[in-house]
Amino acid sequence: MKRREFLVSTGATLGLAALPAAAQKFQPVQDIRPLIAQVTGGAAVESGGIEVELPAIAENGNSVPMRIKVESPMTPQDHVSAIHIFAERNPRPSVATFHLGARSGRAEISTRVRLAGTQKVTVLAAYSGNRFRMKQVDVLVTSAACLDEAMAET
């Protein structure tokens, strides 16, 4: 491991333990490649076939609408088996994993996610037959203009 990477990774770990919540809003980008490798087991990851709807500018990182559409015939032989969401700037980058199958009929998920600041959101789709595709989307997360009671609490 290079020195720089080491500093980044330990910094992220220490940050989680020691920093107050407000400071974590500025927490560094984490390397999510190990998380992706955990899913793929090292198999190749292709691009294309995934549509991600996220606002270009999210006005509150507590609740950002997200819609994922993965192209697939969704048959027992050829379907999407799981959809993973990663947010590299979140203190815990694994946001969610959804398991689906041929009985889903359509590989489409809508949800709302927390984004700790402006960052790249990654969607990884796992297909039957150990195939993978990935899509990354940039989201700008803005913060509130007025000082708020909620900030005093954190």
Binding site: N62, S63, C146, L147, D148, E149, A150
Partner: peptide, 24 residues
């Protein structure tokens, strides 16, 4: 969304007092 909860109008007004740095 900021509070991740339903809240009363009084809570909203109190937040405005906080916003202008007044006693709530």
């Amino acid at each position: 969304l900021e509070w991740q909860s339903l809240a009363s109008l009084q809570r909203r007004l109190r937040a405005c007092f906080y916003g202008v740095r007044a006693e709530q």
